[in-house]
Design a binder for these strands. Structure first.
Lengths: 217, 217
DNA sequence: TAGATTGTTAATCGATTAACAATC
DNA sequence: TAGATTGTTAATCGATTAACAATC
């Protein structure tokens, strides 16, 4: 129910999940929801949900009634920064890069990709998702002129470190890394790996465990 | 140093990061590495890294020498299940679906996508990444025949729940969900959201905080 | 041997859960 | 009012960090 106290990290991590579910409810015209109901649907502990919601909601919930769906949505969006547009430049307009440039949901998450960059001359000069694709040579100039500090790295693993270094040299401060390699960066640069390997491992390990159990009974 | 005790969840989550860095070291011909060195490069606490490695490594590290890179890699791969191939079916051969079907790194992570499915007749019948794309009508039959239990959901949000229900009806037990919506599933079905919204939020919030701090000093 | 480095035990911290009081 | 539901305080649990012993 505050805007002052910092949100616990684990709560923050669960927020996108709540947001998705509340979006669904809002779409169905549901106006209020009890923490218990959210917990049941999302397979979380009831008290955990109450605490999470209390940590972000401005007005809090009301006994007998629960939380107002729209208010919760706004609160979560604010906490996650969806209402604060970040501009980004993407490097590597391959299959994945195209998918990211085309994806329309990013605007809703507060991300605006201004342009893509690629060293392949066949790709440079085209448009993807209504955004220009420029040759790699123009990256630094573009980056400095637009004062963008967020870079999306979608090149193959082999060139990722090299492109990363270039980004850092041009003033990029935070890198969203889709390349499946470890990036070495100076201390003040933020790197967030989009770690598909992790979700995949979590999923397949759980599946394996469940099927082994299933076999036993 | 065990294979018996369960790996703490937080350790498990860090494993893909170690794996990537160790891969890089192995590629450079480095044979042994100290936990301290890993900690420094990955910006983690030294003791945490020691504990993590101790939890997965079969033979453990040796004083003065550190851990053997290759042995660590094998141990982590085993823990994450990379050495255990899971077969999967993908539904939704759009930009993202194509990127996933084309991505060659999955084999290394123990994932084999057998086929893609799409309801667009223009896409069905083609091949992507050397794998067949079949019409949606063939999904259930294919799924049952091949006994595949892992489904990759890469359709737009609007049709995701519907496709999800179909998957569950055909025997899929675990769903890797790339659609940006909440999925409602029966209790025994596993869903792992590939939550790009989260990494993006983490990154842009940290960037914001860092830039605000930077402005003050 | 001395020193680097691992491994372990204990202390701290943060997150989850349980119990219960407050409120509409 | 009674009951559903929130919010809070205390107890438990798990993860991180600190201190130190073990070992090559």
């Amino acid at each position: 129910m505050s805007d002052v106290r910092p949100i616990p990290m684990q709560t923050f991590r669960r927020l996108p999940g709540y947001h998705r579910y509340l979006k669904e409810l809002a779409g169905q015209g549901v106006e209020t929801i009890a923490a218990v109901a959210i917990a049941k649907e999302m397979k979380l502990h009831e008290v955990q949900v109450r605490k999470d919601l209390a940590a972000v909601s401005v007005s809090g919930g009301r006994p007998r009634m629960g939380f107002r769906v729209e208010e919760l949505l706004r609160s979560i969006e604010h906490t996650l920064g969806y209402d604060n547009v970040s501009e980004a430049l993407l490097v590597g307009v391959g299959q994945l890069g195209r998918a990211l440039m085309t994806y329309e949901g990013f605007e809703q998450l507060g991300l605006r990709i201004l342009a893509g960059f690629d060293c392949d001359p066949a790709v440079a000069g085209t448009e993807v998702g209504g955004k220009p694709v420029l040759p790699m040579e123009k990256f630094c100039d573009f980056c400095r002129r637009t004062q963008v500090h967020l870079g999306i790295l979608a090149v193959p693993g082999e060139t990722a470190q090299q492109v990363c270094d270039l980004m850092v040299g041009c003033g990029i401060l935070a890198i969203w890394n889709f390349a499946p390699v470890h990036l070495t960066v100076p201390a003040h640069i933020l790197v967030e790996d989009e770690n598909m390997a992790l979700s995949l491992a979590l999923l397949s390990q759980n599946l394996k465990r469940q099927m082994e159990q299933g076999d036993l009974f």
